[in-house]
Amino acid sequence: MIVTNIETVPGKQIVKHLGLVSGNTVRSKHAGRDIMAGLKNIFGGELKGYTELLTESREEATERMIEQARAIGANAVVNVRFSTSSVAAGAAELFAYGTAVVVE
């Protein structure tokens, strides 16, 4: 599965556009991480726990998007966009969407 965030797949010809596919996930870290993050808010610096959380979630969202694309017979997803929103304190929603296409 080829995933790009441009209109085309470089070096390949798109033969079929299959429309929108998307993947989402909502994840949270355990309370211990939340408390550590609260402490980090005093000293500053990277919140490793949350970085990890968002990375994992984004990967899963992408995974689900790819699964949708595969289910409708596509072999590439172009013009992929990510969006992140916090639906609840400590929980992050990751959303990935793009257009499933068939390249030759």
Partner: peptide, 15 residues
């Protein structure tokens, strides 16, 4: 000229 269509996506992938 490429084709354009929207096949149906099966349920339950995002939930």
């Amino acid at each position: 000229m490429a084709e354009y269509e929207n096949p149906q996506i099966p349920e339950g992938i995002n939930v």
